[in-house]
Each structure stands twice: as structure tokens, then as C-alpha cells.
């Protein structure tokens, strides 16, 4: 999240004062805790972050505001927020319901807006308040479409970062997870239908359930594979098939002292 906040600052057209945060011409200061602003004022790192933006925005599944590796995700992983916010099925919500939990910012400077302004700057930044996860989109000419793609990125990020506890004693994989498994899985019934791949919007809920399981088994791919009726190799291949899933799985394994999957 911290990096995303910095990005927002770096994107403002005029050079910003680096000394005192309250002087920033932000439209809604409550979007950004001022402590964060103060901490991240130096301009050197802004350049570095801008370049990291361009590289990460090339990927379709990961967000522009990502790789904070911390933010909402780690909080959930540490179990602090997980008790309150982590159990909620955000991905099961409709776009509208999810939107209502978000604050939408753009890279526009403050001002009266509306008829006063002609700015075709269409960047959209969504902050999901319950988790603090930030997703943004900048490519399209329509703000509406950018909002839609920011929302879909938000879903991916929620899947990657929000861990929900699982009781392994009586665990049954949810259907979203079964749908992303290869057909050879022995627990996958015929009625589950064809395998859903990373480009399908329904991949995110399955990915979230898979990471939940992996988290519950302390990052052990072989344990998770047994539960899912797959060989360890087959589950590894599934995890490696999507860059953001692989990254999240490896971060999770690293936090448990395990070697990354390759």
C-alpha cells in the first residue's frame, strides 16, 4: 500500500512540496493518512516507483499498485485483520457491492470538477477500505472502463492477499477451487465442468481458495495436492501457470521458511 500511495503522489502533475505533507493539494486528505505522506515524501524514490509502475502495468493479472507485498495482505496473513475482515467473501460480492466498499480516487488535482474541467486523464484508483488493498487502471480513454478494469484487478489482488482461515478437519474444497483444478484431479466431479484458466474472471475466487488451503497447510504443496486429489507435480504446474499466483504462493512459502517453487 505504501508504494501505491507514493505512486499517487508521484503522478500529480505539479512538483510537490516535499517538506510538509499538509501543503499537498489533495482533494480528500482522509484518503491518505498524513503519517504515510510524511514518511514517503522524498522525491528520489518517486522516480524509482514510476519505473516500477510501467513494468508492473504491463502485466494483466497483477495490479499497478501492487508488489507492496504488505498492505492488506500481510495484515491478513498475520491474522490481525483476518478475524474481522478476512472471513468475508469479497469475491462473492457483485461489482456494485464491492464498489461500495471502495474509495475511488483519480490522479486529478483538486478542484470543482464537472463542467469546470476538461481533463481526459482517465486513471482510476480504487481503495478497498476493509482490506486497504489498492488497485488502479490507466490504459483506457473511458473512466468507466478504467473503473471496470481496476475493479477486476482489485478482485485479483483480494484473491492474492486476503487469507481466510480453513478448518482442515472437515474441509471440502469449494466449487470455485475445483473449477480451476486440472481434470485429472480425483476429487473433481464430472459436473464441475471444464477447467477455468487464469484469463477467466472466475479464476480469482478459485485462486483465493487455493491460497487459503496452501496457507492452512503451512505452504506445503504436497499436502495441498493430497487434499485436492492431485500429484504434487500437477499442483505445482497449476501454481506456476499464473505469475501472480506463483508469486503469492512463493511469498507464502517463504514466510514459512520453504523454498520457492520454480
Amino acid at each position: 500500500m505504501a508504494r501505491a500511495l507514493l505512486l499517487r503522489i508521484a503522478r500529480y502533475p505539479p512538483p510537490l512540496p516535499t517538506s510538509s505533507a499538509p501543503a499537498l493539494p489533495l482533494p480528500r486528505p482522509r484518503l491518505l493518512p498524513q503519517s504515510l505522506l510524511r514518511r514517503h515524501a522524498p522525491s528520489q524514490s518517486q522516480l524509482r516507483l514510476l519505473s516500477s509502475l510501467s513494468s508492473s502495468s504491463a502485466s494483466t493479472t497483477s495490479s499497478d499498485a501492487p508488489s507492496d507485498g504488505g498492505g492488506g495482505g500481510h495484515k491478513g496473513a498475520e491474522g490481525e485483520d483476518a478475524k474481522t475482515g478476512g472471513c468475508v467473501d469479497y469475491l462473492g460480492m457483485s461489482d456494485e457491492e464491492l464498489m461500495e466498499q471502495c474509495e475511488m480516487g483519480t490522479f486529478k488535482a483538486s478542484g470543482p470538477g464537472g463542467q469546470h474541467r476538461n481533463k481526459r486523464e482517465s486513471a482510476v484508483r480504487l481503495k478497498h477500505l476493509p482490506t486497504g488493498i489498492i488497485a488502479q487502471a490507466v490504459e483506457d480513454r473511458s473512466q468507466h472502463k478504467n473503473r471496470a478494469s481496476a475493479l477486476s484487478r482489485l478482485r485479483t489482488l483480494i484473491a492474492l492477499k486476503v487469507r481466510r482461515p480453513i478448518n482442515l478437519q472437515n474441509y471440502t474444497p469449494p466449487v470455485e477451487l475445483l473449477q480451476i483444478l486440472p481434470l485429472k484431479s480425483t476429487i473433481r466431479g464430472k459436473d464441475v465442468g471444464p477447467q477455468i484458466g487464469p484469463n477467466n474472471s472466475k479464476f480469482s475466487p478459485g485462486m483465493q481458495a487455493l491460497l487459503d488451503l496452501l496457507f492452512a497447510v503451512e505452504g506445503s504443496v504436497s499436502d495441498a495436492a493430497k487434499i485436492l486429489g492431485l500429484s504434487t507435480g500437477a499442483l505445482s504446474r497449476l501454481i506456476l501457470s499464473d505469475d501472480s499466483l506463483r508469486t503469492a504462493a512463493n511469498e507464502l512459502r517463504a514466510s514459512k521458511g520453504l523454498k520457492p517453487l520454480r
Binding site: Q115, R117, Q143
Partner: peptide, 23 residues
């Protein structure tokens, strides 16, 4: 034109350009 919602709205001088807020 202006890309507005999922539309490409034709505009020209004499007509207000639709704003993103109005979406």
C-alpha cells in the same frame, strides 16, 4: 468524440463534451 462509459460519443464545437462525473 469522447469515450464516455462504454460509448464513443460523437461531439463537436457547440456541444458540451460529456464529463466523466456525469457517467
Amino acid at each position: 468524440n469522447e469515450h464516455w462509459r462504454d460509448l464513443v460519443v460523437a461531439v463537436r464545437e457547440g456541444v458540451l463534451i460529456p464529463r466523466p462525473e456525469t457517467e
